[in-house]
Amino acid sequence: MADKAYHSLLASLPHIDSLFDSKQTPISRFQLERRLSALNFDERALLDDIEKLMHWDNEEKEQMGEAELIRHTNRILGRVNSPALKELINWRLDMRTAIAALRRKRAGQKAPSEPQWSFGTRYEFIRRNWNVPYFNLQHTFPWLPDIARAMEEGQSFEAEKILLGAVWQHLTTMASKQRFSFEAVVIYVLRWNLVLRWTTYDREQAIVRFDQLVEGALGEFASALPDQ
């Protein structure tokens, strides 16, 4: 895409107001894909990779081993030329590493022995500060104590909400610095993904609740139902 054609693409995308007040995504995925077709092949491929990398749960990633996942992440990072995007991806990976470390620590595990046990830029720092509260990252990641508390109390939904809010805040701050560029397109798509994630939570919860109610109503006959 010619540099300046980002003006057309970004102006065609509807504004995303807020995360937690959103009832639905401002534009459907189908329409979003149509607008993103203005990007050239390389940009589209890179955007896809970044999107998959930043996405919370991705089947493809779950099938990879940790070492392969780290290599895969580094490969994608190697293709990113923009310092702003690199910083964003590393921030997000650091966030994931910090949460993973919190979970490991909570499960009573010791500091990882392998040097590159995770991705991002702070895995070594976390390893060295394993026994320090919040790995000495509470100033860099002010939301970390809140997440730790929510995890301690078993409030996984609250923890997820804090995480989403932190990512949203970071993306919003970055969006204010980026105007009509590939970085701005990536940030828009990532924000769109967050809204999608948040607006589908209720539906997911509703399905789980519905299953529980059905099982409760069927009682002992629930086991007679065919598996899906």
């Binding site: 300046k4 054609a5 003006h7 057309s8 970004l10 102006a11 065609s12 995308l13 607008r35 009509f180």
Partner: peptide, 17 residues
């Protein structure tokens, strides 16, 4: 030409929305 092109592209994009 450059200025009108930039603004025109934004106008075209906005018209889609």
């Amino acid at each position: 030409a450059i200025g009108c092109s930039l603004a025109g592209q934004a106008a075209c994009g906005a018209m889609l929305d």
